[in-house]
């Protein structure tokens, strides 16, 4: 039979096709932010290698987290406990390898921290799916539980809220280089960021699991009806987020040689901000891992770039807030345009 052509349709231009990319808003934002600081602080050091290295390192730690958080958000859930997870995983690793307390090899300590994180991630996911409560509430509770447990545990073991004195252990361990070393002039964290972004983006776009993530986040019921194992998908995403937090914790602890119980605080919201700037919808089912990474880069660039301008750094958060608002409004507009284009 002959297909009927609708005379009201015209072919899609490459420009309109571009509008459909969830990352588009963040790429535009990146260009704007870069130009802003290049003009404002181009001759005071923003364009130097040192500055690039600085903001890449800040962006990297956030980006590792944001890539996983973006995947979770596309899957339709939140995790507000990732910041506290960074804190507790950091002190856990620090205590376990500390010459006065755990004496464990670094590999074992990281493995224990990873298992702990996977347990927390599993519990988060299980509780959300079993109770049907919003993940916002469940992980908010977990945020407090982990933060409190971290302080309690750390003070019980060390009498302090900081575990320091890891310098020798780190220096002796070759595994530590994987987290705290550097390659081609860039810190390990930047390579982790790159790797995590590429792998998770491929998972999202090039595997059946990625399709299930979109489905579970877009409409869990509809996805379940066509056979998507929604329960398994979401639990995996919660565990993945906790694992990403642990990687960040290992990088922080081993680079600095100490772990503070306050590490990671606020990172959960920064990761959400990066994901949203990168085009993720709060309601799930739409977004991009690459976008979240670009969002992290923007936040890192703003945080470090402001130092080179004559703006007081105390204003950093005002800028971040403005960026989030601008990005969300732009992304919303672009998405609506792209959905209208071919009606």
């Amino acid at each position: 039979m002959v297909a009927h052509k609708d005379e009201r349709l015209h072919p899609l231009s490459p420009w309109k096709r571009l509008l459909l990319r969830p990352e588009l808003g963040s790429i535009a934002g990146l260009i704007v932010v870069f130009l802003f600081f290049a003009i404002m602080a181009g001759n005071t050091g923003f364009l130097t290698w040192l500055s690039v290295r600085n903001y890449l390192e800040v962006a990297a730690q956030l980006g590792i987290l944001a890539a996983a958080v973006a995947l979770l958000m596309i899957g339709g859930e939140f995790d507000l406990s990732v910041g506290s997870m960074i804190g507790i995983a950091g002190t856990l690793i620090a205590v376990l390898i500390h010459p006065d307390y755990g004496h464990l090899p670094l590999g074992v300590a990281i493995l224990i921290a990873l298992l702990f994180a996977m347990g927390v991630g599993f519990f988060n996911g299980w509780l959300v799916l079993r109770t049907g409560l919003p993940s916002f509430i469940v992980t908010l509770a977990m945020m407090f539980i982990l933060a409190g447990a971290n302080i309690g545990f750390t003070k019980m073991v060390t009498n302090l809220t900081i575990v320091s004195g890891l310098g020798d252990v780190v220096a002796k361990s070759s595994l530590a280089h994987l987290f705290a070393g550097s390659l081609l002039g860039l810190p390990a964290s930047v390579w982790w960021w790159l790797g995590v972004t590429i792998v998770l983006s491929l998972v999202l776009l090039r595997t059946p699991f990625g399709n299930w993530v979109f489905g579970a986040g877009g409409d869990a019921n509809a996805a379940r009806n066509v056979g998507v194992p929604v329960f398994r998908v979401k639990i995996t995403l919660f565990m993945l987020t906790a694992i990403a937090a642990t990687v960040v914790a290992a990088i922080q602890t081993l680079s600095i040689g100490s772990a503070n119980v306050l590490n990671g605080q606020g990172k959960e919201l920064e990761a959400v901000a990066a994901s949203v700037i990168g085009g993720c919808l709060l309601t799930g089912g739409y977004g991009s891992v690459i976008g979240a990474s670009i969002g992290s880069l923007i936040l890192g660039m703003v945080q470090q770039g402001i130092v080179y301008t004559n703006i007081d750094t105390d204003w950093y958060k005002v800028l971040v807030g403005g960026m989030i608002l601008g990005a969300v409004i732009l992304n919303n507009y672009l998405r609506k345009r792209s959905m209208e284009v071919r009606r």
């Binding site: 776009l205 090039r206 595997t207 990625g210 399709n211 299930w212 489905g215 877009g218 066509v226």
Partner: peptide, 24 residues
Amino acid sequence: LPLMSITRNFFLGREPRVGPLRLY
């Protein structure tokens, strides 16, 4: 799912796989 492509909707839950990594 309105925000998902026609193709991805069509194959949701029964994605064709390719290669040793069983990619989509």
